[in-house]
Design a protein around this nucleic acid. Structure first.
Lengths: 230, 230
DNA sequence: GCAAAAGTGTTTGGGTTACACCCATGC
DNA sequence: GCATGGGTGTAACCCAAACACTTTTGC
């Protein structure tokens, strides 16, 4: 990285980065999409926030590298992990030497909301609301936008929403996930029919007590292949 | 490639490959999805067919490398070109040395049916029907299947079908593209209404003469951003 | 009883599918 | 006129959205 020699046979460096999504309540108690960023401690973009990532070890698969990023940054295991895109434009790092060129294979992950709130922050790792990001290093703002688009799109047809929740959950909690990601309110009745028709959940038989109203049924996600789609 | 030294700092090699789709009539005159493959002339998989590709030059973007592959293999310019996926499993080339490990960023392309039929074949480049492929080198059979899935899926919501056709075309020709890719017959009347509702074509005002029946209207694709989606 | 959310029922409208039918040309 | 595909009309069906209404708990 510091010692690249400029010859005709210099190859671009290969890195893996990860966009890690969770949900956390904002100051009004409404769930929002949030993600952790790390502060850079060297040039270029020294001091700016960036996606967690690093070089690909020759002994690990791409998805293993992404999972490792996740663990090193947050201490968490992903509940869902999928490749997003490979970013390799020449102008990703303006003004830099060709020999420093990096091609980033970016993954996106979902982590449980409960685990994520327990994660301790440090001076160099901070969780941001997805719609209130500062200007990030490299092309990372674009990458996050792209990942958000994929998340919203995928939510409509894939069984991933429960990845934010615990083992069992109410339909209201699941609906809140959809509402937070899609950023709009959904009709409770229609939502119930939708998830029932799609068969993405099954009732546990238990109910959640202690609410100030009729106790809701608890559900769990139906078993289905989760993780990478490909 | 032959002289890699095995050290802790060896990085995986980076290559770009391209799945190039066109349509060509089979022996019964029915349109089929076809793609060009190149014969390998060195180990591993010496003599087997593989996707066109090669190392990424440090001076070019990923998409430029894919476009270059396309040109070098077929002499053609892509009518559509989009990143497919980055393949980087450790077991892509069974039995090979870690130092020879290659991460392939794969693109998929559409080329015009007419141009493609004019391309000359050689002993080491051959066009195959997509559903009659031999066993390919590396994980390339899987990659082609994945690309076919993406093509079929994308056809349903993106304006790409005209990429196989000339500047102007009849709705019957456009329908044949859909039928070839999706491998099922479509109702002509409903197809007409679909493309009109989606606004993906506009009439040129001219008609195609010389048929044995009522002369059909000629259409062109409505102008819309083509090429990479991201 | 009242508030609040769980859960059910019903109507409407848009869009897709199947299929009948007419149109315009070459032969 | 006849065959052939171009092109139009229409009814059935499915599904999603809107919204009224009933149910069950805590207080």
């Amino acid at each position: 990285m510091t010692e690249s020699t400029q010859s005709a046979f210099v190859a671009p460096n290969l890195a893996v980065s990860t966009v890690i999504f969770t949900l956390r309540p904002d100051e009004l108690g409404k769930l929002k999409v949030a993600l952790p960023l790390v502060r850079r401690i060297r040039a270029p973009f020294d001091g700016q926030w960036a996606l967690p990532g690093g070089p690909l070890n020759i002994t690990e698969d791409l998805i293993q590298a992404a999972s490792r990023n996740l663990l090193e940054t947050t201490g968490l295991e992903p509940r869902y992990l999928e490749q997003l895109y490979a970013f390799g434009s020449l102008d990703r790092s303006p003004g830099s030497n060709l020999a420093d060129r990096v091609v980033s294979i970016v993954y996106w992950a979902l982590v449980g909301s409960e685990e994520a709130t327990a994660v301790s922050e440090s001076a160099n790792i901070h969780w941001f609301e997805a719609d209130q990001l500062p200007t990030l290093a490299f092309d990372h703002n674009q990458i996050v936008e792209y990942a958000l688009g994929r998340l919203r799109n995928k939510l409509a047809y894939a069984r991933i929403a429960h990845s934010f929740l615990a083992e069992t959950f109410t339909l209201a909690q699941l609906r809140e996930v959809y509402e937070a990601v899609l950023d709009r309110d959904l009709d409770p009745g229609n939502f119930r029919r939708m998830v029932e028709a799609d068969g993405i959940v099954e009732p546990t038989g238990e109910r959640l007590a202690g609410t100030r109203h009729r106790p809701p049924q608890l559900y769990r996600a139906t078993t289905s292949a989760t993780g990478e789609t490909k």
